[in-house]
Amino acid sequence: MNLEKRDIILREIQYWRKNRLLSEQYCDFLTNLYDDEDTVKNGNPISLHNLQKGSIKIWLFGFGIISFIFLISLYFSVFPWGLQLATALSLLLVCYGYSGVLRDRQRVISLMLAGIGSVLTIGFGMWMIALHDLDPEVWRPILIGACGILWCVLGFILRIGLLQYCGFVFWALLYAGFFGGIRPEASVLELELLWLPLCVLMIWLSWLLHHRIKGVSGVYFAVGATMWLMPELDSLLLRHGYPQWVSYILLLKIAIGLVLLFIFRKKWIAWVAS
Rank of each mutant, 00 (worst) to 15 (best):
I58A: 09
I58S: 09
I65N: 00
I65L: 13
S67W: 06
F68W: 12
F68L: 14
F70I: 07
S73I: 05
S73E: 07
S77Y: 08
L83G: 01
L83Y: 01
A86F: 15
T87R: 00
T87G: 02
L93C: 12
V94E: 07
V94F: 15
Y98K: 10
Y98W: 14
S99G: 11
V101I: 12
V101Y: 12
V101N: 00
R105I: 02
R105W: 00
R107T: 09
I109G: 00
I109D: 01
L111G: 10
A114N: 09
G123W: 09
M126N: 04
M128P: 03
A130T: 13
L131K: 04
E137C: 07
E137N: 13
W139Q: 08
W139D: 04
R140Q: 13
P141S: 04
P141F: 08
I142C: 10
I144W: 03
G145N: 13
G148T: 11
I149M: 15
L150M: 00
C152Q: 02
C152G: 03
C152L: 06
V153S: 12
L154T: 06
F156L: 11
I157P: 05
I160R: 02
L163V: 15
Y165A: 10
C166S: 14
G167E: 10
F170G: 05
L173Q: 07
L174C: 10
L174D: 10
Y175S: 05
F178Y: 10
I182A: 12
R183Q: 15
P184G: 05
E185V: 05
E185A: 11
E185Y: 07
S187A: 12
L191T: 00
L193Q: 12
W195I: 03
W195R: 03
